[in-house]
Design a binder for these strands. Structure first.
Length: 219
DNA sequence: TGCCAGGCCGGGT
DNA sequence: ACCCGGCATGGC
């Protein structure tokens, strides 16, 4: 009697949670900091992002007003450690320009909008794709949207819950159709997938050492 | 030492 | 609608 994929997904969450415990994400003190982190961490190790954010904080530049006023070349220099600093400086500029245009520079107000509306608004910003938008919505606004990233895809494909090449929206729908729209579970599930992907299910370790212990077949 | 990290865009088929 | 090159630092 085969178990359906929805049940397998919920089972994965339960196993991850009981193995690793709550991750208490996202690292960041304010919604704006979380949004900046979401842009800076695009295809980049978080530890490189932390340094850039700490630097912005130290220089009192971690606000929509400061980033709006700072010349883009200067901003790039301040976020150097995050990598892709020229392109990311432009993206942060696009983001804060959007905030002032749509919401008076106030991210909190934008995030009170309806999920579907605010997601499309965020996606209209040059430099904000689906993962960045969902990260901001889930972790800064506590809205029930699921974040899909490279770890999510790798883990799901290694566990044969989903082929490698499916689209972002297909993976997101798989999670959102299988689980109750619970912000806490979406938050922890994504964070747990990143934790697993980070510590065990990496590219350098094609045989995920934690998975057999968790009762999963990933030959 | 090379390979990898919590993507996304723009130009070309 | 896909496909691909470009973007860049820092750690293992």
């Amino acid at each position: 009697m085969p178990v359906d994929r929805n049940t397998l997904l919920l089972d994965l969450y339960k196993r991850l949670f009981s193995s690793f415990g709550p991750r208490h994400w996202w690292p960041g003190d304010s919604p704006f900091e979380i949004a900046v982190g979401a842009i800076l961490t695009q295809n980049t190790a978080w530890r490189n992002v932390e340094k850039a954010i700490a630097n912005l904080k130290k220089k009192n530049l971690l606000s929509a007003e400061a980033i709006y006023s700072l010349p883009v070349e200067d901003l790039a220099a301040q976020i150097r450690s995050a990598g892709y600093y020229n392109i990311k400086a432009k993206r942060l500029k696009h983001f804060v320009k959007f905030l002032f245009r749509e919401s008076g520079g106030n991210l909190d107000r934008l995030l009170t909008w309806d999920l579907h509306i605010s997601r499309n608004e965020l996606l209209s910003i040059n430099g904000v794709g689906p993962e960045t938008a969902d990260s901001i919505l889930l972790y800064a606004a506590n809205k029930p949207t699921f974040v899909v990233d490279a770890y999510t895809r790798r883990i799901l494909s290694r566990h044969r819950l989903m082929p490698e090449e499916v689209s972002y929206d297909e993976v997101r729908s798989f999670f959102m159709d299988s689980l109750e729209p619970d912000v806490y579970i979406f938050n922890e599930f994504h964070a747990l997938l990143v934790h697993l992907g980070h510590t065990f299910c990496t590219k350098r370790k094609p045989k995920c050492s934690a998975c057999p212990a968790m009762g999963w077949n990933n030959d």
